[in-house]
């Protein structure tokens, strides 16, 4: 058994061409993912993110906020993200305050469409927010 008081280390994974930058903040209850995500095996990357979310939701009772600026996701990343959104849904049904904010460049409607499809299966606050476009 793991000790519930042990804090799981925060994630600080730099982004690459095919993987997003991932940062977690246990103290603030925040998880941030930014960039493209199309690794061949998304679970090699996302398993640790899923583990962090599971741990935060089970050890803490504070709100959890996901801040996403994801752009392109391959289907294997879509599946991994759905697993994370499902964890949030489960927590939300248990009365836990959770939220997602997905920032996107309004010049590319595909990103908003992808976010909308995720949102369809979530009953917690899920904001899809265009970022200001600099001319």
């Amino acid at each position: 058994m793991t000790n519930a008081m042990t804090m799981i280390p925060d994630l600080d994974i730099p982004g690459s061409q095919s993987t997003p930058a991932i940062r977690s903040d246990w103290a603030a209850g925040r998880l941030t993912l930014q960039g493209d995500s199309y690794p061949e095996n998304s679970y090699e990357l996302f398993d640790q993110v899923i583990a962090w979310v599971e741990r935060f939701l089970s050890d803490e009772s504070r709100p959890l906020a996901l801040e996403l600026t994801l752009v392109y996701l391959n289907t294997s990343s879509v599946k991994a993200m759905m697993d994370i959104f499902d964890l949030l849904e489960e927590a939300h049904e248990g009365g836990r305050p959770v939220s997602v904010t997905w920032h996107y460049d309004p010049r590319n409607e595909r990103i908003a469409e992808l976010a909308e499809e995720f949102k369809e299966d979530c009953s917690y606050p899920f904001a899809i927010t265009p970022t200001p476009v600099t001319p």
Binding site: E40, N41, Y43, E44, N74, T75, S76, V78, K79
Partner: peptide, 14 residues
């Protein structure tokens, strides 16, 4: 996820 490295059917549907 049967095989973690693959979502073959999902890719084609996409």
């Amino acid at each position: 996820r049967v095989d973690a490295s693959s979502g073959a059917g999902l890719g084609l549907l996409d």
